[in-house]
Simulated assay, not measured.
Amino acid sequence: MTVAASLTGLTTLVTGAGRGLGAGIARACAAGGADVVLVSRSAEEIERGAAEIRAAGGRARAIACDVTDLPRFAALVAEAGPIDVLVNNAGTNVPQPFTDVGPEIFDRVLDLNLRSLYFATQAVVRAMIERGRGGSIVNVSSQMGHVGAPNRSAYCASKHAVEGLTKALAVELGPHRIRVNSIAPTYVETSMTAPFLADPGFLADTLHRIPLGRLGRVEDVTGAVVFLAGPGAGLITGTSVVIDGGYTAH
């Protein structure tokens, strides 16, 4: 089976698919043959993304949903029909010194990065178990799920938790033939990272920490998602694919 056809016949749901990495993942999964369901709060963005995929010959539909709205997401799972692959990409980061982080910011980061991911996965997994055909979960974590960094205490906490959850679910869901893995990218050039990378000092320090000497691009990440989602990764579960240019190798 070629990579180009590796997801043929599989329905893949991607959260946070309106822009940046999520939109790129949706396009890559469609190029791999998947029927893609794009999910985001912004109906306009995902409708445009789904239209672009269809124009390129793929299959895609858009369903607007705030993933932190748990009852709405559970209803969405039923609306979307059988899901073979879930890519948990929705996330946020609000960098602040640890001593400045208040409950509101902490809750905002953990609610989207961890709580919504936990219960979105639960809703999809319940349907997967009922179908009895197995499936694949790919959690978009971060290199910050493996290391620490200043001004990112809430973000690091959420992503370390995602890495632990990935391992726990891989063990628990393995008997149901549901694989659970994560990807852990470095700084990828997207609208979310643009404000940080606009700081020349931060950018220089970041590039100094990456042995390959460059930031990540969306296309550096999408191939790993397609691989982990598909049958070529049939014996891979409970692992994290670190896509960081060597950042965490120090």
Rank of each mutant, 00 (worst) to 15 (best):
T2Q: 10
V3Y: 12
A4M: 13
A5R: 13
A5G: 13
T8K: 06
T8P: 00
T8G: 00
G9T: 02
T11D: 04
T12W: 14
L13Y: 04
L13K: 00
G20D: 11
G24R: 02
G24P: 03
R27T: 14
A34V: 04
A34W: 01
S40A: 15
S40Y: 07
I46A: 02
I46M: 04
I46C: 01
G49Q: 01
A50F: 04
R54Q: 07
G58M: 09
R59V: 12
A62C: 12
I63T: 07
I63Q: 12
V67E: 07
L70H: 12
R72V: 06
A74N: 09
A74S: 13
L76A: 09
E79Q: 14
G81H: 09
P82Q: 05
P82F: 06
D84K: 05
L86Y: 02
T92P: 07
N93R: 08
P95N: 11
T99A: 15
V101H: 03
G102N: 08
E104L: 11
V109Y: 11
Y118V: 12
F119L: 15
Q122P: 08
A127V: 04
I129D: 05
E130S: 07
V140K: 09
S142E: 06
Q143N: 12
H146Y: 07
N151C: 14
S153C: 03
A154W: 03
C156S: 10
A157R: 08
K159D: 10
A161D: 11
A168I: 01
R179L: 06
N181L: 10
A184P: 02
Y187N: 11
M192C: 08
T193P: 13
T193L: 07
A194Q: 14
F196E: 15
A198E: 12
D199E: 10
L203H: 08
A204F: 05
D205W: 09
P211H: 12
L212Q: 14
L212P: 00
L212G: 07
G213N: 11
L215Y: 07
R217A: 11
E219K: 05
E219Q: 15
V226H: 02
F227R: 03
L228H: 00
L228S: 00
L228I: 01
G234T: 08
L235V: 11
T237V: 00
G238Q: 00
S240V: 01
S240F: 00
V242D: 00
V242R: 03
D244F: 06
